[in-house]
């Protein structure tokens, strides 16, 4: 039976001089999974990716691809391809030649590789650009070329190093959906590195949260968001309020004027004064000074309210309420 694990890392470490960039990471990434490595810059996620690609040699531990130990293999002997953060397109080659590069290196006949390269460009919706140079394309288009250039080799695992980081917001959101589609269609394991928690949550089947060269938590986006294993995860993935000994997410908190009466079906509540109102279009963020000490943020959908209404709530006395099941503890 084929191994169901696309990538397995056991005790992988990497030191640069006295600095431990990666301080012992164990991970299993399943075949066909969209797996994200999320963390702030310097948390070791990119170094882990580069060790899987073969650009860096681990100081210790093992890297396995589909059950095969590849720790000591060069990048060109591994069945993975990378989409680089700066795209790393060859500026002296045309778009078609860029996409063909991997096939050409592997001695695929010219007619065949032309055909496959064109098909790959079609799959990223980039037709008719064959003879252009990378410098003549926009950021989003270059990103697609980089994707086609990697996918055309039909790797077992595609490694993506913050591939959307250089795009503007609108384009980034479009590419998020598109990447997900491409991954589903190609059936290839995607290993995605990002520092953007929203991106990781929206795109991934599972997420590993990195901090200081270690994995803090691995789980589905919902698990990581709703049940953070550590204080770091709770703070890094989304925002959270610390009220007493527990944490509550801002969107789980209901906000009512104190004299408006009952808290509904909520089983926890606290009172306070609105210190700040931040109107953000679809929702409003209320910063509340709690009577019991500390501050909490509550996020309210602007279902029926408008900016005029919510602004008037500053300095009002309010009651915050939430359900016990939405509370979580962190060690």
């Amino acid at each position: 039976m084929a191994d169901q694990t696309a990538v397995r890392l056991s005790g992988v470490r990497k030191s640069f001089g006295a600095v431990d960039a990666v301080a012992g990471v164990d991970l299993e990434i399943r075949d066909g999974e969209f797996f994200s490595m999320l963390g702030p810059s310097g948390s070791g996620k990119t170094t882990v990716l580069r060790m899987i690609a073969g650009f860096e040699r681990p100081t210790g531990g093992r890297v396995e691809l589909a059950g095969r130990d590849v720790t000591a293999l060069a990048p060109f002997d591994r069945d993975v391809n990378t989409v680089f953060q700066d795209y790393a397109l060859f500026p002296h080659l045309t778009i078609l030649q860029n996409v063909e590069y991997g096939l050409r290196v592997r001695k695929v006949a010219k007619a065949r590789r032309r055909e496959r390269a064109r098909e790959a460009l079609r799959s990223v919706r980039l037709e008719g650009f064959d003879d252009r140079r990378p410098a003549q394309l926009s950021g989003g288009q270059r990103q697609r070329v980089a994707l086609a250039r990697a996918l055309v080799n039909e790797p077992r695992v595609l490694l993506l190093d913050e591939p959307l980081g250089a795009l503007d917001l609108k384009l980034r959101e479009e590419m998020q959906v598109e990447l997900k589609e491409i991954q589903r269609r190609a059936g290839i394991t995607f290993l995605f590195v990002t520092h953007d928690q929203e991106e990781a949550l929206t795109m991934s089947d599972r997420v590993a949260v990195f901090n200081r060269g270690r994995v803090e938590q691995v789980g589905t986006p919902a698990e990581v968001y709703e049940r953070p294993a550590t204080a770091f995860v709770a703070a890094f993935v989304g925002t959270s309020n610390r009220i007493g000994d527990v944490h509550v997410r801002p969107e789980k908190i209901r906000l009512d004027l104190l004299d408006a009466g009952g808290a509904g079906e909520a089983d926890r509540s606290a009172t306070g004064t609105v210190a700040e109102v931040v109107y953000a279009g679809p929702h409003t963020r209320f910063v509340v000074d709690l009577d019991g000490g500390g501050r909490a943020v509550a996020l309210q959908q602007n279902l029926q309210t408008s900016s005029m209404d919510v602004m008037r709530l500053r300095d009002e006395r309010v009651r915050l309420s939430w359900r016990a099941e939405h509370e979580f503890l962190t060690p």
Binding site: A53, G54, F76, A88
Partner: peptide, 21 residues
């Protein structure tokens, strides 16, 4: 950029081919 050298290796090219191409 170093990433171009990485990319060439990543796409299957050995050192000599990366130097040449």
């Amino acid at each position: 950029p170093d990433s171009l050298l990485d990319a060439s290796g990543d796409l299957g090219a050995g050192t000599l081919r990366t130097l040449r191409r």
